[in-house]
């Protein structure tokens, strides 16, 4: 009986993991006037999502405006797909002391 359950669970995991990996986009949470994580590393082609959990609006703006969100109110999110490897510095145009980095590595 135990073995059956184990095999069943393994099957669930095997099925679940690829599906999870496809859906998951790395998330940066904006909370208490900070991006968390502040530095994120992803492979080229990855979509990154920022979610604002503060009761103050924030933005996500690349230093050279390669990408730029609208004002994100509480609960709003913004996504950007990084296609080119490199280091992307971004900040909040409401609170320029808030800064973050996304490092994009070459596709595996």
């Amino acid at each position: 009986m135990k073995t059956v359950v184990r095999i069943f669970l393994l099957g669930v995991l095997l099925l679940a993991v690829p599906a999870f990996a496809e859906d998951a986009t790395p998330q940066v949470v904006i909370d208490k006037f900070a991006y968390a994580p502040t530095a994120l590393t992803v492979a080229a082609g990855t979509k990154v999502t920022w979610v604002n959990k503060d009761d103050t609006p924030h933005t996500v703006v690349e230093n050279n405006k390669k990408f730029r969100s609208a004002a994100l109110d509480t609960g709003d999110s913004y996504s950007y797909t990084f296609t080119e490897p490199g280091t992307y510095h971004y900040f909040c145009t409401f609170h320029p002391k808030m800064v973050g980095t996304v490092t994009v590595t070459a596709k595996n």
Partner: peptide, 8 residues
């Protein structure tokens, strides 16, 4: 005149 990391 916002620049990242500094005041306006």
């Amino acid at each position: 005149g916002f620049k990242p990391g500094s005041m306006t």
